[in-house]
Design a protein around this nucleic acid. Structure first.
Lengths: 140, 140
DNA sequence: GACACAGGGGATAAATTTATCCCCTGGTTA
DNA sequence: TAACCAGGGGATAAATTTATCCCCTGTGTC
């Protein structure tokens, strides 16, 4: 496993939260799990742009940080289900706020992001399915 | 300037927001500016762990993304002041939510973060000043 | 047999982000 | 003259994160 060489900043709430949410797919994974997408294979289908490997790694980090729990069913073929922990659920208002702000300002944001000369392309495949499905989040 | 080779994900609100907030000091910088810390030198003092270079770069990205505005006073020695734009202000509830969640769960988070074998050290120098000052955020 | 499913994870390469260093402007102060 | 202030930014190294590839388990289907 990779070993960090630079101290992790844990000074303020912002840095703590950043540490937990730091990963390209982490916010989206938490959101998906809260929407009852619990199996790895479902997540893979939901995020076609993410590789299996990366999702595995980020799920494991979320688990290590105590945001999600993994349940392995001793079956064949194997079956795994993730769920949010209590503290994981408490993060959802933050995720929702991020999600809503991004969606509310989509037009502006897409423009400024694409305007940036360092940005080559943008990709739009994932997540859409999720909002389109408009699945009601299970409470409790 | 660095040119991205991988398409930037802009599919859902979460990814858009991530793109804007992606940078070690960005959330903290936005928070600081909202607290009326507007000059680069003040920010440097506030975040002793951040190098001048990195703050400059991240401030410029925030500016390019339209979250902050830079005002240069034609003086000597030079004087620069940053301020939040309208859309930058609209991001504050998200920043606040992240900040509060992190602070509210500090004990737990510090534990799980340090528990992780990949984490070497943690650093706590910055930001504290800011919350201790408890500066009232200027509205408008 | 060959291939698919549902999962896990090592090794390694490539991309991206941070950190370090160093130079530059033009006053002011020791 | 040397050093500091307040700011800007190029070059390059180091660290970290993502992407790619490949192999492995055991059962079921073509």
């Amino acid at each position: 496993m990779y070993e960090r060489k630079i101290p992790v900043a844990i000074d303020c709430g912002l840095h703590l939260t950043r540490e937990v949410l730091n990963g390209k797919w982490k916010p989206a994974l938490l959101n998906a799990i809260s929407m009852d997408i619990k199996r790895p294979s479902e997540m893979l289908r939901l995020f076609p742009d993410a590789s299996r490997r990366v999702l595995n790694v980020q799920l494991k980090e979320l688990e290590e940080h105590g945001m999600i729990e993994k349940k392995v069913y001793p079956q064949l073929p194997p079956k795994v289900e993730y769920s949010l922990t209590m503290i994981g659920w408490s993060l959802m208002p933050v995720i929702d706020a991020m999600n809503q702000w991004g969606d509310a300002n989509r037009q502006f944001l897409e423009t400024v992001i694409k305007q940036n000369p360092s940005v080559g392309q943008t990709s739009k495949s994932a997540c859409l399915n999720l909002s389109q499905r408009a699945i009601q989040r299970k409470i409790g």
